[in-house]
Write a protein that binds this DNA or RNA. Structure first.
Length: 444
RNA sequence: GUCCCCUUCGUCUAGCCCGGCCUAGGACACCAGGUUUUCAUCCUGGCGACAGGGGUUCGAAUCCCCUAGGGGACGCCA
């Protein structure tokens, strides 16, 4: 029988990172085994704005590249895929239990009569787990609506779910679910309980309120979806061969529940950032430019620069800095000086550079030599600096450092010669002229 | 309180099932050098862990037991 798994989120208006990881593991499992990945919406809570909440969820899924074979917008033969539309199915199944004498009314609610037998599951992740369900539990509230455990089992059963992959927080619920499956005379599906994601500081699992816990945040910050997906895959799963940067195709072919860890994993935003940076550096130019520009526009960074779709200077600047960046949302701070003349000199850079040798004199010499240059290329500039350094018996750094400070106001940035080339001859000389005439002073 | 799950570097993990190849491997972070051009790039190196205690065994990170710690579930929430 071909594998059918489902991701069954409740639309809350947020797409939590833990849910996303559960969705990802289900998706990988389905794709790896050539099965079906079903999206089922547990929208029984009418209080929330379900339209909006659903949109957040679907957008998050798409952003991560998790496509579903059945569910909202995709349809399928096992619908409806919204719990709110399945009441007739639930009622019918309640009647089945009633007929078997396994459901009874008490204080207005309907209780399920447990067998009290130990329930054994051979969990795909954790191995044999045994637990006994001692007490009868409510399956229909006194207001007539079915509760989670009941609908969950009925849905899995009627949708032909073969494997239930979910968070470990459901492990203790599984005995209830097994009781129900058996009451219906149905063999329970296989279960795989994956570890939880713990908050990086303090005790407990990650919650909506923790920083970095929402997928939409990474979208807004223009993280690369493939990077987030890659990081999430590594939380609680390992390919066991020391590889970490893995494409969707590689993840699909390598993933299986046997590689899933039993212990909970702490969320580590630094590792996520690292992986995101790897993806950022590896991005093809066109894709990178599109991503960067869309972020700048969204962040309202210098409208006059981002307005035109072919601002060549902006593109050159962005490309020059690509390999240095950690994240897209750090671009504005990193490139701003390319676009203004009145940038400030960073105190710590001034302190570091202005104290050594005679920086103003070195810059003065460079301005003089560079203004004679006919070709403004990396090779020509390098030759120019090397020649000056040799002639004056000093290292090239004596020129490069103050010049960088002069044209950018900082001591960090892209490769020096590339920097000057992108800035162009006019901007470079103009900036250095200002530096010579009004050099920064060390304070403190 | 009851029940369930887990326990290798600060963090994510490999190794554990099938004990010896483990003086425990990789990655992030951190630190130090290098790239005689910066650094938020890149390269090299360093730091750093088998929770504790009992067994079993010639031999245990690997098997068993106990303790401790962490997490989760115990709702007419999902």
């Amino acid at each position: 029988m071909s594998i059918r798994v489902r991701f069954a989120p409740s639309p809350t208006g947020f797409f939590h990172i833990g849910s996303a990881r559960t969705a990802l593991f289900n998706w990988l499992y389905a794709r790896h085994h050539g099965g079906k990945f079903i999206l089922r919406i547990e929208d029984t809570d009418r209080e929330r704005n379900t339209d909006d909440a659903l949109r957040v969820l679907l957008e998050g899924m798409r952003w991560l590249g998790l496509d579903w074979d059945e569910g909202p917008e995709a349809g399928g033969e096992y619908g409806p895929y919204f719990q709110s539309e399945r009441n007739a199915i639930y009622d019918k199944h309640l009647q089945i239990l009633r007929d078997k004498g396994l459901a009874y009314d008490h204080e207005g609610a309907v209780f399920f009569k447990v067998s009290g037998e130990p329930q054994v599951i051979n969990d795909l992740v954790r191995g044999r787990v045994e637990r006994k369900e001692e007490k009868d539990f409510v399956i229909y509230r006194s207001n007539g609506s079915p509760v989670f455990h009941f609908v969950n089992v009925v849905d899995d059963m009627t949708m032909g779910i073969t494997d239930v992959i979910r968070g470990e927080d459901h492990l203790s619920n599984t005995s209830k679910h097994c009781e129900l499956f058996k009451a219906f005379g149905v063999e329970p599906p296989r279960f795989g309980h994956i570890p939880l994601i713990l908050k990086q500081q303090g005790p407990g699992k990650m919650s909506k309120r923790d920083a970095g816990s929402l997928i939409e945040e990474y979208d807004h910050r223009h993280f690369i979806p493939a990077a987030v997906r890659n990081y999430l895959a590594l939380l609680g799963w390992s390919p066991k061969d020391n590889r970490e940067i893995l494409s969707a195709e590689e993840l699909v072919s390598l993933f299986d529940l046997s590689g899933v860890t039993k212990n909970n994993a702490k969320f580590d935003e630094r590792k996520l950032s690292f992986i995101n940076a790897q993806y950022l550096h590896a991005l093809p130019a066109a894709e990178y430019l599109e991503l960067a520009r869309s972020y700048l526009k969204k962040a309202n960074w210098r409208d006059e620069e981002t307005r035109s779709p072919d601002n060549k200077y902006l593109d050159e600047v962005l490309l020059l800095c690509q390999e240095k960046l950690h994240a897209v949302d750090s671009i504005p701070a990193f490139i701003d000086y390319f676009f203004v003349f009145d940038y400030q000199y960073a105190p710590k850079a001034v302190k570091k550079i202005m104290k050594k040798g005679d920086p103003v004199q070195r810059v003065r010499e460079f301005v003089e030599a560079a203004s004679q240059l006919e070709e403004w290329t990396e090779a020509a500039l390098e030759k120019c600096i090397t020649t000056l350094a040799e002639a004056n018996g000093v290292g090239t750094g004596e020129y490069i450092h103050p010049c960088r400070l002069g044209v950018s106001g900082t001591n960090a940035g892209p490769g020096f010669y590339g920097l000057l080339v992108v800035l162009g001859k006019d901007r470079t000389l103009e900036r250095l002229q200002r530096f010579v005439e009004n050099p920064p002073v060390v304070v403190g």
